[in-house]
Design a binder for these strands. Structure first.
Lengths: 178, 178
DNA sequence: GGCTCCGCGCGGCAATTTGCCGCACGGGCC
DNA sequence: GGCCCGTGCGGCAAATTGCCGCGCGGAGCC
């Protein structure tokens, strides 16, 4: 941890990456940006970053595949996974792989920074007072089955008894809140 | 793991607990049931269960507080957290505390059993477990929330973030199977 | 090199479902 | 009586779906 103030931002959305990078610099952090998995892979050994903001959907490949290399380069690395297509299934996966936290986009810089500081798990977190909306539940279910089928949309659609075209369309939409 | 076939079910909903217990017994598992955190606390040292189905909302207290004791009694214990009030925040917390998996409540036994195997990837042993169709899942969820709201269609629609008219129509149409 | 089989992404169009009005009725409750 | 809700249902535009199609690219096989 020769430089605990350096944060590596991995996100293939140029606008988001730039905005977040600037916001972090404003707060006094050193920022390294990667816009693709390849770029990230190149930066990881060089920076051995202690803190990483990692997008889940990086141009085709899953950001989850970078968690391993990140931790290998620096076991103390704190990784906050960020995604616009948040689901419980991928959250579980990310944490199991060693991510420090998992946040849904859109979020704010404060939340990201707070996520880095998350230490020992606290038994009493957000008490979810309201059940999931039907849309949200559907999204979660789709994500879970999709993971079981290794991301294969066609076979997932078959398992769910829905048409592939419909599944595609649903996946393009963002997960709904609630 | 003197008896890896024993599953401890911790859930304060008697109906759900009974149904799940019976389904598990049907599949050849030994089942121990706890309807409260106190009951569970008493059973934990006795059974040192290797597999636990744990509800998040147990009569006021959080099921997360039981994860520690469960793992203390048996570090190899596999815990599947189950909740009707799922959220990404609690999912992250549960996994960090050592749970094996986290599922949102309208689910089926196959998914629960599959969740136990999560850490041991066995693609070829993948059972023909057909996940619930989205329609069926939606139906189950609606019924659950409707019951929680004492059959009040209007407030259920609000909680589900759907229009009352749509809920009415759904309730009229299907008791679908599949 | 061919070839076939799949999965993927997407366009188009009809059929269905939805969202969102409206209205009338009934039961509490002040 | 009036007021507030919840319920059932009609109607109609907007959105979603089901179901075709197509081309492309990769894996496997001859």
């Amino acid at each position: 941890m020769e430089n605990p103030q350096t944060i590596l931002v991995i996100d293939d959305d140029p606008a988001f990456n730039r905005v977040l990078g600037r916001a972090l610099k404003h707060r006094g952090f050193e920022v390294a940006s990667a816009l693709s998995a390849q770029e990230a892979a190149a930066l990881i050994p060089a920076t051995r970053a202690a803190r990483v903001v990692l997008d889940l959907n990086i141009a085709g490949t899953s950001g989850l595949t970078l968690i391993g290399p990140l931790l290998a380069a620096n076991p103390d690395c704190r990784i906050v996974v960020l995604t616009g297509y948040a689901s419980i299934a991928t959250a579980v996966e990310a944490i199991k792989m060693g991510a420090t936290h998992y946040l849904a986009k859109p979020t704010d810089v404060e939340a990201i920074l707070a996520a880095f500081e998350a230490t020992a798990p606290q038994p009493e977190v957000a008490p979810p007072s309201q059940p999931l909306s039907v849309d949200r539940l559907e999204w979660e279910h789709i994500q879970r089955v999709l993971k079981e089928h290794d991301g294969n949309i066609s076979s997932t659609a078959r398992a769910l008894k829905m048409h592939r075209r419909t599944l595609q369309r649903k996946l393009m939409k963002r997960p709904v809140r609630g």
